[in-house]
Amino acid sequence: MPVFDLRELDRPIIGAPMAGGPSTPELAAAVTDAGGLGFLAAGYRSPGNLEDQLGRVRELTAGPVGVNLFVPDSLEPDPEDVARYSNSLRAEASALGVEVGAARNDDDGWHAKLELVLDARPEVVSFTFGCPESRVLATLAQAGILPMVTVTTGEEAQQAVAAGARALAVQGPDAGGHRGAFDQRTIPTDRPLADTLTEIRSQTAVPLAAGGGVSGPDDVVRLLGLGADAVQVGTLLLTADEAGTNPLHRAALTDGRFAETSLTRAYTGRFARGLTNRFIREHADAPAGYPHLHYVTAPLRAAAITAGDADIAHLWAGTGFASARPEPAAAMVERLSPTR
Rank of each mutant, 00 (worst) to 15 (best):
Y44V: 13
A112N: 09
G101Q: 12
T128F: 05
V125G: 12
I200E: 04
D183R: 07
L253K: 00
H283A: 10
V31E: 00
D73V: 09
A303C: 05
T239F: 03
R104E: 10
R90V: 15
V151N: 03
V82Q: 07
L248P: 07
V170Q: 01
L238M: 11
E80V: 14
A322H: 13
A175K: 05
M1T: 08
S323V: 04
E115G: 14
F258T: 03
L315F: 04
A30F: 02
T152L: 00
C131Y: 11
A331R: 11
R325F: 01
L236I: 01
R281G: 08
A330E: 06
E327A: 15
A298S: 13
A240F: 01
P217L: 07
D33V: 03
P2Q: 13
A93P: 08
G320I: 01
R273P: 03
V67E: 11
P25G: 05
E80I: 12
G38L: 00
L54P: 03
R45N: 13
S23C: 08
Y267N: 05
A252N: 02
D81V: 07
A266D: 08
L137N: 03
K113H: 14
R58M: 13
I305M: 11
P2H: 06
I13M: 00
A284M: 13
A181I: 12
L118C: 11
A317N: 01
G227S: 11
I187G: 06
G164E: 06
H283N: 14
V151E: 01
D311Q: 10
V206R: 06
D195E: 15
